[in-house]
């Protein structure tokens, strides 16, 4: 916590005629949600520690359009997408990393056909690459031997087939990784996707996040690792609902790595 965060915008890079190696797409959750902002900061600390030359869009970033599209509003999605693509292409952005699987999915899969072609990585993939390249060193620290369970974000796992990068990073913590019965391809949703985050759930006999949190807590893990700001919120609420507050914490993988390295 000692080092101030080093963050430059794309506009600043452009003004100095430089190109960053990657653009960090923060997303609306990472920008505005109190809980998710902590993830943003943790990831920035990792990037700083690894001396990654990265940029953010700052005020020029705008919603990818994911929730509008899943809620059926294709016009709004297209407006957002095309404005974002104009800005990204204007700066000649080639590589993007994001801590949000929904932004990740949209920019990676849905922007190319609209003229936005970038190499897009999820932050767990990026962190994993940094570790493999030796740019950061991770030791277990306070997490050594702790039981951690990982909740697969649907838009990263089933959606885009990435199950291993987050687990490989977690294993670097020397933690005891315990799997829920419903994991990887069979992972259960947190309940937030498909624009559910912005609406009340339909009538039922249980909340999806409670169903999932019970399963996570049932593994005996004291830490539920997440890789998505939406999942993080849903599971954090879930922990409160099942009376696990103070006993079980929900942490993003970036937060775990930053904490382990005392960044």
């Amino acid at each position: 916590m000692t080092q101030p965060l080093q963050v430059k915008t794309m506009a600043e890079y452009a003004a100095s005629g430089e190109m960053p190696e990657v653009l960090f797409w923060i997303g609306c959750m990472g920008s505005f949600d109190d809980r998710a902002r902590k993830i943003t900061k943790a990831f920035v600390r990792i990037l700083n520690k690894a001396n990654v030359k990265f940029a953010v869009l700052g005020q020029e970033e705008s919603c990818t359009g994911d929730p509008a599209r899943r809620a059926g509003n294709e016009f709004l999605f297209q407006m957002q997408a095309m404005q974002n693509i104009t800005i990204l292409n204007g700066y000649g952005v080639k590589r993007i990393v994001t801590a949000c699987p929904h932004c990740f999915n949209t920019v990676k899969n849905e922007y190319p056909v609209l003229g936005g072609q970038y190499e897009v990585m999820h932050h767990t993939q990026f962190i994993n690459a940094l570790i493999k390249e030796g740019r950061i060193k991770v030791e277990g620290g306070s997490f050594k031997g702790k039981r951690i369970t990982f909740h697969d974000p649907c838009y990263l796992g089933r959606g885009n087939g990435e199950y291993e990068a987050p687990r490989e990073v977690l294993l670097k913590l020397d933690a005891a990784l315990v799997e829920m019965k419903r994991s990887k391809e069979k992972g259960l949703c947190c309940g937030a996707g498909g624009a559910q985050m912005w609406k009340e759930a339909e009538k039922g006999d249980k909340e999806v996040n409670v169903e999932r949190t019970e399963e996570a807590v049932g593994t005996g893990a004291k830490i539920i690792a997440a890789g998505c700001p939406f999942c993080n919120t849903m599971l954090t609420d879930g922990v409160k609902a099942v009376g696990g507050e103070g006993k079980v914490v929900v942490k993003d993988i970036a937060e775990l790595i930053a904490e382990a390295g005392e960044l």
Binding site: C154, R158, K186, C189, G193, G194, E202
Partner: peptide, 10 residues
């Protein structure tokens, strides 16, 4: 009510 989680398609 759909969360678009794609558990069904999987």
């Amino acid at each position: 009510a759909c969360t678009t989680c794609n558990a069904c398609t999987q």
